[in-house]
């Protein structure tokens, strides 16, 4: 059950991304192109996800603990450190350039588009560089 639930979560996530059109970078970039070929679909994806996750999280956190773990492992920080903002700003530039963020890029990997096959390894290298340059602070914090 534990393995099945994790696999199902991954499968639903990927299927959701494909169904929503977000595995297509052109659709993401068109959302980001307010003054050109604007496609507001991405706002509906986020709204759909939040409309389910917000009440779902609220009920889930009423549980004494998760089904297959000893405790909830939620981020606890509330401060706005420069890393959060600098990291998010950097992420946004890359997201705008390629139209891919981590979920859609991995989901689209089996379609084996050349650009996706370049993007994903570069993304993994970028993650490792960030971990190497600030490992002790960031460990177990990435959300």
């Amino acid at each position: 059950m534990k393995i099945l639930s994790t696999f199902l979560a991954g499968l639903l996530f990927g299927t959701g991304l494909i169904l929503s059109g977000m595995a297509n970078p052109a659709k993401v970039q068109n959302f980001l192109d307010l003054f050109g070929t604007w496609d507001p679909s991405l706002a509906f994806v986020m709204s759909g996800a939040i409309m389910v996750a917000m009440p779902g999280f609220w009920f889930t956190r009423k549980l004494p603990k998760p089904l297959f773990n000893d405790a909830f492992q939620l981020p606890t920080r509330t401060d706005f450190d420069p890393k959060l903002i600098a990291g998010a700003a950097t992420f946004g530039i890359g997201w705008g350039l390629g139209g891919f963020c981590p979920g859609p890029a991995l989901t689209a990997l089996p379609f084996a588009n050349t650009s996706t096959l370049l993007f994903v390894p570069a993304m993994l290298v970028g993650m490792m560089i960030a971990k190497f340059t600030s490992a002790p602070v960031l460990r177990n914090r990435a959300a």
Binding site: K2, L8, G21, M22, G48, V52, P66, L67, Q73
Partner: peptide, 20 residues
Amino acid sequence: SLLGGALIGISAVILLASHG
């Protein structure tokens, strides 16, 4: 897009409920 988003939301709830 709304339906796909809802699937992503369900996935997030499953992961939180099963593994925290």
